[in-house]
Design a protein around this nucleic acid. Structure first.
Length: 111
DNA sequence: TAGCTGACGCCCT
DNA sequence: CAGGGCGCCAGCT
């Protein structure tokens, strides 16, 4: 089971509330810097997972909510983030640099 | 079965 | 400074 996808889900679940990470960061953490696309694709499949996956805490390296349209409504992602104390304007996370949570740095490759 | 696409990222022109 | 193209791995048609 523990495939690229599962790894992504596990890391995504480890993202603390009020923090966000990027697809590339997760991909790099898993050992495939160029597989950022897979992370996004995994998020899409996250709905099939029995365990909830905070896909709203995963954005692109630009801090932009690129996948907000994949939620029930385009506003869902923004609301979830703002609900955690993250300021979002026009799908863009404010102070993204400060909210950014790097698994490679925080988890220190424990996985 | 083989090919295309996909919620990204970085390099090159 | 801006735009376009290639690379990544796996799932879906």
């Amino acid at each position: 089971m523990s495939d690229f996808f599962d790894q992504v889900y596990q890391v995504a679940r480890k993202v603390p509330p009020g923090r966000v990470t990027s697809y590339g960061a997760i991909a790099s953490y898993l050992g495939s810097p160029g597989a950022a696309r897979m992370v996004g694709w995994a998020m899409n499949k996250s709905g099939s997972q029995e365990e909830f996956v905070p896909a709203h805490r995963v954005v692109n390296r630009n801090g932009l909510l690129t996948g907000k349209f994949h939620f029930d409504t385009p506003k869902t992602m923004e609301e979830l983030l703002e609900n955690e104390g993250i300021e979002v304007v026009e799908g863009q996370i404010q102070n993204f640099e400060k909210k950014f949570w790097d698994p490679s740095a925080e988890l220190d490759l424990e996985l």
